[in-house]
Amino acid sequence: MERAAWDARVKLNSEETNELLEHSRLVFEQLDSIPESELDTLQATCYGHSQPNTVREDTEEASLPLSLSLGNAPDADESCFRVPRIIEE
């Protein structure tokens, strides 16, 4: 669970961790009660319809203006998102 919280980039306190453990166990028990053999031959369904996923026409369009792109940035300089340093000293 600690690893999962790290992957999700969230901190869970001990109460939250215990609660999540308990509920996860409940879900896993219910999943385990469904025999694998009943599902082995079935394909996984990934989307609500079976329409092939298509991409739009590759036509050139104007980008968002820089001011709009950076408008919601928590921290920015003139043209870039500013982030804490990645390589720690």
Partner: peptide
């Protein structure tokens, strides 16, 4: 947080 923690798990 718990929901996405479960998703990560």
């Amino acid at each position: 947080k718990k929901f996405i923690g479960f998703g990560a798990l």
